[in-house]
Write a protein that binds this DNA or RNA. Structure first.
Lengths: 232, 232
DNA sequence: CTTGATGAATCGTTGAACAATCCCCTAATT
DNA sequence: AATTAGGGGATTGTTCAACGATTCATCAAG
C-alpha cells in the first residue's frame, strides 16, 4: 500500500510533462528564449504575420503564445497595434525591487521553519553561479543568480509566491539589457550570495536579512544609475 | 510649465481607460462577474459552443477570454476536456492566506511612510462594509472587505503588489461558496476591520499587525473548517 | 508649421473545416 | 454480475481564409 502511494505521487508529479505540448506553448518557449537572451530587445514589435510565417504557425496559435508571454510580463499588448517586447521603465525596476524586498525577506524569516533540504538548495545555486563565472558564461551566472533568489522565496513553500517570484525575475531580466557588460553587474554579487547562503544555513537569519537588503539597495541603485545614464 | 506637467501626468494616467475594449476582454469581464457572484459555481464546465452562442462571440474569441481568466486562476483548462470554474482545494486556501499574511503585514508596516490619504482610504471601505451590513447586502459586505484589504496593501504604493492582491482576493472568493451563510462569515469581521483601521490611523502599527494576523488565523480556520465539514 | 484627408498595412473577429481526443453506451468475455 | 473492449457522438485543438476596424505614414491645403 505504501509503495502504491509512492507510485501515485511520482506519477502525478510527472503529469505536467505529458500534457505540456501545445503548439502555442512551444512557440512561447522559443520567443521567451529570444527575449531573455536579448535577440529580441525591448521595444521590438512582433508582427503576427512575420513571426507566424517564420515559425510556421497560424496567427491564432501565435496570438495564444503572445497571451502567454504577456501574462509573464515579457510582452505588452496594445490594442490594434500589436505586441511589443516589454520596455521596463525605471519605475518598474524600482517596483520589482520593492516587491522582491517583501517576498525575499519573508523567505529569509521563514528559513527557521523551512525544510533543511530547501535551505541547502539555496547554496547549490550559489555554487552553480560561481562555476559559471569561472567558465566566463555571464548569462548563466545571471540564471544562477535568479535561481538563488527563487530558492530563498521557496523557503516559504508557497506555490503562489513561487510563481510570483518567477514572473518578477523573468521581468527583471528585461532590465539587464541596459547594462552593457553583464560581468560588471553580476560579478560583485557572487560573494554576497555565498555569504547570505552561509548565514542562512548557520541560522543567523537576522544578519542574512540585513545582507539581503543591502544587496537589494546596491543592485537596484546600479540598475537605476544605468537607466539614468542611458537617458543622458 | 508646472501646469503642463500636471496635465501630462493626469492624461497618461487616464490612458488605460481608452484602450480597454477588446471583445475577449469584455467577455472575460462578464464571465468573471458571474464566477465571483456565484452564478457559475466552482466545477462548472464552460462549453465553448454553449457560452459562445449565448454571448454571441466566436469560438476563437471565447477561447481568448478563457485564457485571460485561466491566467487569473479563476478557470482551469484541461486538455481536450474544456475549461471549468476553478475549484479551490483546502491547500489553495491555506496558500492564499500565507501570501496575504506576507503582503498585508508588509502593507501595515509601510503605513508609517505612506500617504495619509492612503491610510484614510482604508477606513472608507470599513464604513462601506458597515453600511452594506445594515442594508443586509452580504455580497456587498464581502466586496467592501476585499477593498479594505486591498487598501492595506495599497499602502505599499506598488502596482505589482496591487495587481497580485487583486488576483489573490478574486481567487479567494471562489472559496467563499463553501460557506452556506455569507453573513456568519462576514459579520464578525466588521468590527475587526474597524479596529485595525483605527489603529492604522492612530499610528499603532505594531498592534495593527497583531490584530491583522489574528484575523487571518480565525478567518482561515473558519474556511478550512467549512471545507472539512463539506467533505464529511 | 499645423491641420485634415487618403491609402496601405496590420490587427480583431468571425466562420468553417478537419484531426485528435474524450465520454458514454453497448456488447462480448470471464 | 463485473470487467473489459470497442464504436459512435460530441467536444476540443488547430489551422485557414476572409472581412471589417483601426492605426500609421504620407501628402496636400491652409
Amino acid at each position: 500500500m505504501a509503495a502504491m502511494a509512492e507510485w501515485a505521487e511520482r506519477l502525478s508529479a510527472a503529469r505536467p510533462l505529458l500534457d505540456r505540448a501545445s503548439a502555442a506553448e512551444m512557440v512561447a518557449d522559443v520567443l521567451r528564449e529570444n527575449i531573455i537572451d536579448g535577440s529580441l530587445p525591448p521595444g521590438t514589435r512582433l508582427s503576427e504575420e512575420t513571426i507566424g510565417s517564420l515559425l510556421g504557425v497560424s496567427r491564432n496559435t501565435l496570438r495564444e503564445a503572445f497571451r502567454l508571454l504577456s501574462h509573464e510580463n515579457l510582452l505588452v499588448h496594445e490594442l490594434h497595434r500589436g505586441v511589443f517586447v516589454r520596455k521596463l521603465a525605471a519605475a518598474d525596476v524600482a517596483d520589482i525591487y520593492a516587491m522582491r524586498r517583501i517576498l525575499e525577506t519573508a523567505g529569509v524569516r521563514a528559513a527557521a521553519q523551512a525544510q533543511p533540504e530547501a535551505v541547502r538548495e539555496v547554496r547549490k545555486h550559489v555554487d552553480a553561479g560561481q562555476a559559471a563565472a569561472e567558465a566566463g558564461d555571464w548569462v548563466a551566472v545571471g540564471t544562477a543568480n535568479m535561481r538563488f533568489h527563487r530558492a530563498i522565496t521557496a523557503l516559504l513553500a508557497s506555490p503562489r509566491v513561487d510563481a510570483t517570484m518567477a514572473r518578477l525575475l523573468a521581468e527583471l531580466r528585461l532590465a539587464f539589457h541596459v547594462m552593457g557588460e553583464l560581468r560588471t553587474f553580476h560579478e560583485p554579487y557572487l560573494e554576497d550570495n555565498a555569504r547570505i547562503a552561509t548565514l542562512l544555513i548557520e541560522g543567523d537569519h537576522e544578519r542574512a536579512e540585513r545582507e539581503l537588503l543591502a544587496y537589494f539597495d546596491t543592485a537596484e541603485a546600479q540598475l537605476l544609475a544605468a537607466y539614468a545614464e542611458r537617458l543622458a
